[in-house]
Amino acid sequence: MTQLKGWRDIPIGGVILEGGNAVEYRTGGWRAFRPVFGQAPCIHCFQCWLFCPDSSILVDAENEKMAGFDLDHCKGCGICASVCPVNAKVIRQAGEKLNRDDPRLCIRMVEEGKME
């Protein structure tokens, strides 16, 4: 945790004197549901990466793989799970409504703090 500055020492107008600093603001603590991988294997289609509003899908660019979730910044909105085509397929094949933390899914949304 950096030392918080006094009002005399911050730039006027709420300006931050550099760009690209959102990464320093850890919004992961806002999360109520955590994205985790389930049993259905990821097909690395990057739909989750495309739709994630917080740039929190980690990507292995060299091997063109979806590599996981940046839990320091993911707010747990669940858009990744909603747009995941593998999830859609699992739900269709199950022929029933699945809970969002169903182990059969590809991206599951598990309640934070809930023991697995």
Partner: peptide, 9 residues
């Protein structure tokens, strides 16, 4: 010299 305007406080 990019800066951040309108950041959440």
């Amino acid at each position: 010299n990019p800066k951040t305007y309108g950041a959440l406080h």
